[in-house]
Design a protein around this nucleic acid. Structure first.
Length: 984
RNA sequence: GCCGGAGUGGCGGAAUUGGCAGACGCGCACGACUCAAAAUCGUGUUCCUUCGGGAAUGAGGGUUCGAUUCCCUCCUUCGGCACCA
């Protein structure tokens, strides 16, 4: 994840004293506020509890008061930092503080701020800070009535949501006259509660889908639930509620919550992976892959989580400590017979991203995950009583002549056979110890190399040298062939091992600069370029640091070993086949039947879906409840009809999410997973959005799945998703990851209830860069709330158009100033250009900024009086374009104001306005004039001024003349439309 | 150790291609309105300053008339991988 917590970082790096803290004591205000603010600052108590429901039209802010001890210590204030602009107001304030602040108010924590010594000059000398510290948490209630305007988000939002749904406004229907746009956002797991992170991942893509629709695309924007999985089953074990019941309840709740967002989800296309009509086809796909030879069964040591009682895929085991992705328990190894998909068959193709527009970070992660390395597999004959050929993989066949010993992984199957009798005891002991270590961790980087000699020897096939065979735990059974040729002169690990056990080190690559005479004792492994030495006929061959065939030395040796029959050129991957089996109940059953005579066969199509039995018991045994069910596993062989047993494992849930984008195409189709007509129109996915945490899991599996289905004949094209964009993560206000246990979860329902969905949507798009994410800030939302309300005022309250007395007295001065209507048009079209650009590029936060700027300009224009109420064309155009630009972001208020303007329903079916480039163009521009790189003056020139005209205008400037002081400019650079730079 | 992000005011962030650093917003300060608050509206708000100006985009160097942007070295931080042969 690229999410960074900059706030915290910077605070840690530079813990500066806040200015506000220093000044605060001088601004004494009534205790109510003072208290709240001090508490807020000192203890950073800005919890979700600060948001509460609307009460009688007045917002009630509940502030949770926690420990306030810190405030007791007086702050010594350096007098230099204290500035008093107005001593009268200060003493007035102090008076207020002393007369009012000291009286405790009911339910209120009273804290007298620390008083700096300079206050002695004031008549009243308050007591030293003596805080009333509440023993426990208390709630302070602060009345905050809202400015009374006619904007009522609740009724507007409910009204339009109902109408849109009744009108099927967002239903995606095939329309061959339009270009389709399939916008997909990763589906949530139905944990039961939507949090603000869900909104962060859904609202901006929703706004963009809406924008694409206004641009004229036929947009499909579906939503569903990834409903199988561990948490529901764990909960079932814990408190006995059936996973199905819990899951579908959660889905109902989350769907209701989601609908308050006012998103354009086409709910008629909803899919739920745990519904039989969906997992029927998950099972069916498994069978297709099995029939195509892509599914196989293998006994293998798998990573197993003892707490969740389930096998884990490699990528579900996290970090150095090798802990379970979900619960953090250290994983253990377990030998089980399981189903795999041959994902490695597509390894090379998965490395090719040519046809897709995906973030570089994801491409790099996938590339590193697959980790392809080119090299050779070379056969080394074993000498002695047990004669055999040992295969090793190497990326450096050019160093074969330097292989002075071999090392086997302790688990290598040949170890027992080759070990000579007198070394057996030592080897056995080492193996036992290594096996124990695997479970903890074998891979501490700087761990000292250890190993044991087997007593056996092999022959280096290139020079017939007799070399010893050792075992050591630094060689892994899971990579390559589980055995290596050790070249200590040119490999760091082999070098360390050779040094420790005093094994021969023969250099075979010599740096070109180094003469033969300089050769002495070797102190480190050399991995750089050079020429081959001690390598028979290859002596003198140049070797670079390139990998594979690009390296001339490697290329020559590869050709030669092939001719000699010593080995062959191969490619090795770190990527493993996809382990599908889970010893769990709450997943799609693996639809396979085992018969003693006919082996494994798929459940016949007419018996699909193979349903999960509902009457199961959850016992914390580690066995799948399906295995414990008395009858479910008993069936008959599809081939011979004799008694047979079902597979009791279920599928990894990533199987379900590998094809959900296809089910959205035809969610109710029952003749197949999807309808071909729908596929032809909608696929591939045009824009896919979601978190980057799925880079090496879901996003790799779904690509594999698509390619496998393509080869079987069900899908077309090489990739399922053309454009991918990742959003960052929303952290809690404390900067930590949101979690229930930390109590820092922000619930969107509460926000919507208080501010309305439109304001929350706007803030979600505005508060952080979408691709970065940021810690949540409850206070900042006020800005978006004000924006939405000010827009409402702009459209509904004409009274402020006329210069008036009172509040707007200052307006008369503005009104006196002429306002050129072209300024408004220019700003409107410049904003439109910017907003269009930003929607295209997923830059959501600046969309809101631009709209705020334009609103400010519109207020200015209206208050200048020239346009207000006059119904000028410029003003009307501005209003219309403004609402259209707002519509994707704040769909409800835009629709409401659109209707109030008397425009035809619905604004969401209006075309996106076109930029009038002529109107957007500036007629005169202000250019900064730099002298020796420093801005000294600004000149205003016509937009189309020639370079010469600009130059002379710059030189005509008094300021410039002053700085030139009679000297001649050495050089003058005019950056068109940017600036003038003069070098003296 | 390797790979990939990120580092800009008190805070979130802005700055199409190398061209006015700090848009927009939060917060804060002051003012208007108010009995008073809240709300609303307005003004100001990077730092230093002898008021001329100077410094500043993690640190240091380089290229350039000009660098937040390009290059080199380093630091911090987040994420991924890690005895991968």
């Amino acid at each position: 994840m690229t999410t960074t917590n900059k706030k915290e970082t910077r605070k840690k790096a530079a813990p500066k004293k806040k200015k506000a803290d220093v000044k605060k004591p001088f601004k004494a205000v009534p205790a109510k506020i003072k208290t709240k603010k001090l508490i807020g600052k000192k203890t950073t108590v800005r919890k979700p509890a600060a948001i509460s429901s609307l009460k009688g039209g007045k917002a009630v802010k509940a502030v949770l008061v926690k420990k306030v001890k810190k405030i007791e210590e007086p702050i010594s204030t350096p007098s230099s930092q204290v500035k008093r602009k107005n001593s009268a107001s200060t003493s007035k304030a102090i008076q207020a503080a002393t007369t009012k602040a000291i009286q405790p108010v009911k339910n209120m924590a009273l804290i007298v701020p620390p008083i700096p010594s300079r206050l002695d000059i004031v008549l009243i000398k308050p007591e030293p800070a003596k805080a009333f510290v509440p023993a426990k948490e208390e709630i302070i209630q602060e009345e905050r009535p809202r400015h009374d305007i006619s904007y009522s988000p609740k009724s507007i939002e409910a009204k339009w949501q109902a109408k849109w749904e009744a009108d099927h406004l967002y239903r995606a229907v095939i329309d061959n006259s339009k270009t389709k746009h399939y916008a997909l956002t990763m589906l949530p797991y139905p944990s039961g509660d939507l949090h603000i992170g869900h909104w962060f991942s859904m609202i901006p893509p929703d706004a963009r889908a809406r924008y694409m629709r206004m641009k004229g695309y036929n947009v499909m924007f579906p939503m569903g639930f990834d409903a199988f999985g561990l948490p529901a089953e764990n909960a079932a074990i814990k408190d006995g509620v059936h996973p199905m019941k819990r899951t579908f309840q959660n889905i109902d709740k989350m769907r209701t919550q989601m609908k308050t967002m006012g998103a354009m989800f086409d709910w008629e296309r909803e899919m739920i992976s745990a519904a039989p009509e969906y997992y029927k086809w998950t099972e069916w796909f498994f069978i297709q892959l099995f029939k195509a030879g892509l599914a196989y069964r293998k006994m293998s040591a798998v990573d197993f989580c003892p707490k969740d009682n389930t096998t884990l895929a490699r990528e579900q085991v996290i970090g150095e400590d090798r802990v379970c992705e979900r619960c953090g328990t250290p994983v253990i190894k377990k030998e089980l017979d399981q189903w795999f998909f041959k994902a490695t068959r597509y390894a090379d193709e998965l490395l090719n991203f040519d046809s897709i527009d995906w973030p570089q970070a994801v491409k790099t992660l996938q590339t590193n995950w697959i980790d392809r390395s080119e090299g050779a597999e070379v056969q080394f004959p074993v000498v002695g009583p047990y004669s055999s050929l040992i295969s090793v993989f190497t990326t450096r066949p050019d160093t074969l002549w330097g292989a002075t010993f071999m090392v086997f992984s302790p688990e290598h199957p040949l170890v027992n056979k080759i070990t000579i009798d007198e070394n057996k005891a030592a080897v056995e002991e080492y193996k036992t110890q290594a096996a124990r270590q695997t479970e903890i961790q074998r891979g501490a980087v700087d761990k000292e190399k250890t190993g044991v000699f087997t007593g056996a020897y092999a022959i280096n096939p290139v020079n017939q040298a007799r070399i010893p065979i050792w075992i050591a735990d630094y060689v892994l059974m899971s990579y390559g062939t589980g055995a290596i040729m050790a070249v200590p002169a040119h490999d760091e690990r082999d070098f360390a091992f050779a040094k420790k056990y005093d094994l021969p080190i023969v250099p075979v690559i010599q740096p070109e600069a180094q003469g033969e005479a300089e050769q002495g004792e070797i102190h480190a492994a050399y991995a750089g370029p050079g020429i081959m030495v001690n390598s028979g006929k290859f002596n003198g061959t140049k070797v670079t640091t390139d990998k594979g065939r690009k390296n001339p030395g490697i290329a020559k040796v590869l050709d030669w070993i092939k001719v000699e029959g010593i080995g062959k050129e191969t490619v090795n991957y770190r990527y493993r086949d996809w382990l599908i089996s889970r010893q769990r109940y709450w997943g799609a059953p693996i639809p396979m039947i085992h018969c003693d005579v006919h082996g494994w066969n798929p459940v016949p199509d007419d018996q699909l879906p193979l349903l999960l039995p509902e009457d199961v018991e959850w016992l914390p045994t580690g066995e799948s409840p399906l295995k414990l069910h008395p009858t479910w596993k008993n069936t008959t062989c599809p081939v011979c009809g004799e008694a047979a047993v079902r597979e009791t494992d279920t599928m990894d849930t990533f199987m379900c999410s590998s094809w959900y984008h296809l089910r959205y195409l035809s969610p109710k189709y029952d003749q197949g997973p999807f309808n071909q007509t729908d596929y032809d129109y909608w696929m591939p996915v045009d824009t896919y959005t979601g978190g980057i945490e799925h880079a090496t899991m879901h996003l790799l599996y779904t690509r594999f799945f698509h390619k496998a289905l393509r080869d079987i004949g069900y899908t077309e094209g090489h990739e399922p998703m053309m454009q991918l964009r990742n959003q960052g993560m929303v952290l809690g206000e404390d900067g930590g990851k949101m979690s229930k246990s930390k109590g820092n979860v922000i619930a969107p329902d509460v926000l919507v209830d208080r501010y309305g969905a439109d304001s929350v949507r706007a803030y979600i798009m505005f508060f952080a860069r979408w691709e970065m994410g940021a810690p949540w800030d409850s206070q900042g939302i006020e800005g978006s709330v004000r924006w939405v309300r000010r827009v409402w005022m702009l459209f509904t309250d004409d009274s402020r158009g006329e210069p008036s007395s009172g509040i707007n007295a200052f307006n008369s001065t503005l009104a006196a100033r002429p306002y050129d209507a072209r300024n408004l048009r220019r700003k409107v079209h410049q904003t439109l250009r910017k907003v269009t650009h930003d929607f295209d590029n997923f830059e959501f936060n600046t969309i809101i900024s631009s709209l705020m700027e334009l609103m400010n300009e519109m207020y200015k224009a209206r208050e200048a009086g020239a346009l207000a109420g006059s119904g000028s064309v410029e003003w009307k155009e501005a209003l219309e374009i403004y609402l259209k630009m707002m519509a994707p972001v704040t769909p409800h208020i835009a629709e409401e104001l659109w209707a109030q303007m008397g425009k035809p329903y619905s604004i969401h079916q209006q075309p996106w306005p076109a930029v009038d480039e002529a109107a957007a163009k500036e007629d005169s521009i202000e250019l900064p004039v730099q002298i020796n790189g420093k801005v000294r003056d600004r000149i205003t020139v016509p937009a189309e001024a020639t370079e010469d005209a600009i130059k002379s205008a710059a030189l005509a400037s008094e300021v410039v003349q002053k700085f030139l002081a009679g000297r001649q400019p050495k050089k003058m650079i005019v950056a068109q439309g940017r600036l003038v730079s003069i070098v003296v």
